[in-house]
Amino acid sequence: MSNPLFYAKILLFGEYGIIEDSQGLTLPYSYYKGTLKFSELKNDFEKKSNLSLRKYSDYLINLDLPNSFKLKVADFQKDIENGLFFDSNIPQGYGVGSSGALVAAIFEKYSIKKYTPENITKDELKDLKKVFGQLESYFHGKSSGIDPLICYMNLPILIENKENVDRVSIPESEAGKGAIFLIDSGMTGETGPMVQIFFEKMKTEGFRKTMKEEFIRYNNACIDAFLKKDMNPLFRNLKNLSIWAYEHFKPMIPESIYNAWKKGLDTNAYYLKLCGSGGGGYILGFTKDYSKAEKMLKGFQKEVIYRF
């Protein structure tokens, strides 16, 4: 049996904004991956994974999916009885799509109709996103379906608005001084509570106004500049985005990162932003001079994901 690998994802731009119809840009991240496998379930990891698949299959039985996206749940349950588990090194609670990769792997193996990045139409992509939202909402309470879609398609995806998504090509990474990188906050974050905080904030008119007039404007401008590889407007808008998050997303910024976030803004050596819902996990960093930023962020675990 060939085991297709499903990679993690990184939401480069659009955290929280995509809930409010901003654009988003997300890409696969092959450093972390997962695949469905069979075993005799001898260790705790495999047993735990098998048990959680069993519980998930109970959820899938009662899920009413459109015909062209239906799953062979009986086959899935039979495989679970035979020792199926999800072998993954994707950290949970880190904002890199651990449940998205699992949902993508299950859909790929058990969907009645097969889709590939080459043969899928834009309308099917839109419908698939909705289906993935239903499949992933088991893990988060409410899901946009974006994470599993990225993991499934294994391509960069531009989120145009709440309804529409499209494949996009991003500029090639090249060996330059600049970098986009991940910082490990050293703690896990839970999506549910963070999203709850966001919805509470959205109840106040002032926050709604600044979200629409400032955050979404900076966010969409960053995506536009990044796709055009136009670095000056990118960093100008990144700084605005980072200041905005520092002022308005304080509960979502892990305490361990708070001073480093401010230091980047004060020195302009790098800018930080949330990677996913925040509260822990990874934070994204952008810099025109990675060696300088790296020295200033001494003590943090970092991983470069893109060079320019």
Rank of each mutant, 00 (worst) to 15 (best):
Y246F: 14
G176V: 10
T188C: 04
E205R: 13
L241Q: 12
F249G: 02
A175M: 14
N232I: 15
C222V: 09
P233Q: 04
K203A: 04
N219C: 07
T191V: 01
N240V: 07
K212Q: 10
M252E: 10
L234R: 07
R236M: 13
N232Y: 15
M211Q: 09
D230I: 02
A179S: 11
I180D: 05
N220Q: 10
M194V: 02
P251M: 00
F207R: 10
F226Y: 11
G176L: 13
F249T: 01
I253E: 00
L227P: 10
P193F: 00
I183H: 08
R208P: 08
I243K: 06
T191Y: 00
M231I: 14
M194P: 07
V195C: 05
F181T: 03
D224M: 11
M194D: 02
F215G: 11
F207W: 05
E200F: 01
S185E: 00
S242H: 03
F207H: 07
G186H: 01
T210V: 14
L238S: 12
F215Q: 15
G178D: 10
F199V: 04
E213G: 08
D230A: 03
T191M: 00
H248N: 12
I243V: 09
F181L: 02
M194N: 03
I216F: 09
F226M: 11
R236C: 11
C222F: 08
L234W: 04
L227I: 04
E200W: 01
S242D: 03
K212E: 10
K201Y: 03
N219Y: 05
F235E: 03
N240M: 12
L234Y: 08
R217D: 08
G206D: 09
E255V: 01
K250H: 03
G176A: 13
P193D: 01
S242T: 06
A225R: 07
G192T: 08
M211D: 03
A245E: 15
Y246T: 10
A175P: 15
S185G: 01
E214L: 07
M211S: 07
A245S: 15
A225K: 04
K201W: 04
K203P: 02
R208L: 09
F207M: 04
M252H: 12
A245I: 14
